[in-house]
């Protein structure tokens, strides 16, 4: 038994155990913390299957941003309130059993007939020179399957908008003024973020990195700023925020449509591909960062939508009295 296998086994086992522990927590606050740990272990397992891009994204978005969002949301609903209705035992056991059987079948099938994917690795390599990037993952994301990525950016935009719809007139408690230590931390970390974010974008052309990771980092900066002494993003005009939110999607879509003149939707001419990809990555980083920040603010109840917005029922025409 090689050490690698031992490690993998332990990792897989702890993933399952952590998942069960997460599910068995009594309060949402505890569950979120467990979930974040689970996300970190998951990132580790991505690393084990040689997918550093995914590991980075998982750590940044799956664990970091998601955890932050959930914690921010819990600010509004309460950390320590226990989950409303625990599932009764007669349901829990069959569900557990069913999941176990499904997992068993899945692992049996996979173990029995797994072969190294006959996939597209070769093809991907073969056409790399035409893509304008040296990182195969970036090539897949922004070149071969750019259409998927375009729609993914759309998903993020739409998610941010959904958070907007959720944030009603009821706003959360205002943020307390941070202490001197936090201010000091901000002063040091802000430049670091500003350094790392562009680096991440730029490195995506060659190595793990790119818009999603950079955007997640940017949203970290956003969250810090919101917590900090001058939460200036909150004072931005709504219109500016909206422009920022849509920037990546707009630019991506416009670039894609611009390529119609070259005969293909999203088909960059090979000699300009690098520039286009960089441009799109930058715009998407900004938008991803902004939309995740907006979600953070929205989940925490800090998005002050117009208080005049009434829910649907009140906006309806008043009922006419029946004779």
């Amino acid at each position: 038994m090689s050490p690698g296998l031992v490690f993998d086994t332990v990792l897989a086992f702890s993933l399952v155990v952590l998942a069960v522990i997460t599910l068995r927590q009594r309060t949402p606050g505890e569950a979120v913390v467990q979930l974040m740990i689970f996300g970190l272990l998951l990132a580790l397992s991505w690393l084990r299957v040689d997918a550093p891009d995914l590991a980075l994204t998982e750590a940044a978005i799956g664990s970091g941003v998601t955890g932050a969002l959930l914690l921010a949301a819990l600010r509004r609903t309460g950390f320590g309130k226990p989950f409303p209705a625990p599932v009764s035992a007669w349901l829990r056991y069959p569900v557990t059993l069913g999941c176990a059987v499904l997992g068993l079948i899945l692992s049996l099938v996979v173990m029995q007939s797994w072969h190294h994917p006959a996939g597209l690795t070769e093809l991907t390599r073969q056409y790399m020179p035409e893509t304008g990037t040296e990182n195969p993952v970036t090539a897949v994301i922004l070149n071969y399957r750019a259409y998927d990525t375009l729609l993914e950016i759309g998903v993020l935009l739409v998610a941010a908008l959904s958070v907007y719809t959720l944030s009603g007139p009821a706003s959360g408690t205002p943020v307390k003024p941070p202490g001197p230590i936090f201010r000091f931390y901000m002063r040091i970390m802000t430049p670091v973020f500003w350094l790392v974010v562009p680096y991440m974008v730029w490195v995506g052309g060659r190595a793990p990195g790119g818009a999603f990771q950079a955007g997640a980092l940017l949203s970290g900066l956003g969250a810090l700023t919101l917590l900090g002494p001058s939460p200036w993003p909150m004072r931005l005009r709504r219109r500016v925020v909206r422009w920022g939110l849509t920037l990546g999607f707009t630019l991506f879509l416009a670039a894609a449509a611009w390529m119609w003149q070259h005969g293909n939707f999203l088909g960059y001419p090979p000699e300009q591909a690098k520039n286009w990809i960089l441009l799109i990555e930058i715009a998407c980083t900004l938008s991803i960062g902004i939309s995740l920040t907006v979600m953070f603010a929205g989940c925490a109840g800090w998005l002050h939508e117009d208080p005049k917005i009434a829910p649907e029922s009140a906006a309806q025409a008043p009922k006419r009295r029946h004779p």
């Binding site: 202490g179 000091f184 040091i188 970390m189 670091v192």
Partner: peptide, 16 residues
């Protein structure tokens, strides 16, 4: 360095 900074600040905030 970044971890040190973050952990110190985080610990402070938590304690606060």
């Amino acid at each position: 360095v970044v971890t040190l900074l973050s952990s110190a600040t985080g610990g402070f905030l938590l304690a606060q």
